[in-house]
Computed example of a mutant assay.
Amino acid sequence: MDPRVETFFEEAALWPEELSALRAILREMGLEECWKWRAPCYTFRGGNVATLWGFREACTLSFFKGVLLRDPEGVLVPPGQNSRSARVMKFTSLDEIGAGRRQIEDFVAQSIANEKAGRKVDLPPDDFDLPEELSERLEADPDLVAAWDRLTPGRRRGWVLHVGQAKQSATRQARIDKAAPKILAGKGMHDR
């Protein structure tokens, strides 16, 4: 086991009891615990199933392929406006976790079944346009365009959203300047 996982739970400043309770459920369901993206991650046969996070407003249990889960009560929500695959459950007390335990176990069981079946989220192709500044930069730099083409679709999407959300052209250009070395290294916005 990665010692960073234990440190995460020992040093959790927000929702420590709730995070530990969710951890216990996930481990009881037979998921493997590892460390990815600066958080505990739970996998089945190498496939990412869930991760835990503690935020100011709630602790969350995030399912990587949450859009594939049957959720008749609508408790799973996208973690952000640009989320296409992940869905989260939010908790603010141990009582909520206790009351939602059957749902959690059902979602984990569905996720395991999806991994066994090899199900993937069928994401439609991105329908966004490159920000003008990014398009111009790619046209002017053959090394950057080659690196861009090697990025995964998700990494390209992340960069386009990051650059495109800036309101001013100068800010978009500054973001591209800062991003270029990471793109050349084959990294996405959140990669270290």
Score class of each variant (00 low, 15 high):
1 M>E: 10
3 P>Q: 09
9 F>V: 04
10 E>A: 12
10 E>M: 12
15 W>E: 11
21 A>P: 01
24 A>P: 06
24 A>S: 13
26 L>M: 09
28 E>W: 10
30 G>D: 07
30 G>K: 11
35 W>H: 14
35 W>T: 12
39 A>V: 06
47 G>P: 06
48 N>A: 11
50 A>P: 09
51 T>N: 09
51 T>Y: 04
52 L>H: 13
52 L>Q: 07
54 G>A: 04
54 G>T: 01
56 R>K: 14
56 R>E: 06
56 R>V: 04
58 A>V: 07
62 S>D: 08
66 G>H: 00
70 R>M: 07
72 P>I: 01
72 P>M: 09
74 G>T: 05
74 G>A: 03
76 L>A: 02
78 P>T: 02
82 N>Q: 15
89 M>Y: 06
89 M>W: 06
91 F>Y: 05
96 E>K: 15
103 Q>A: 15
106 D>T: 14
110 Q>Y: 15
111 S>C: 08
119 R>D: 14
120 K>A: 15
124 P>M: 06
128 F>H: 14
129 D>F: 01
129 D>M: 08
135 S>Y: 11
146 A>T: 13
155 R>C: 03
158 G>E: 12
160 V>Y: 00
164 G>S: 08
164 G>Q: 07
164 G>C: 06
170 A>V: 13
170 A>F: 00
174 A>K: 15
174 A>M: 13
174 A>S: 14
175 R>N: 12
175 R>K: 04
177 D>L: 07
180 A>C: 11
181 P>A: 00
183 I>Q: 10
186 G>Y: 08
188 G>C: 12
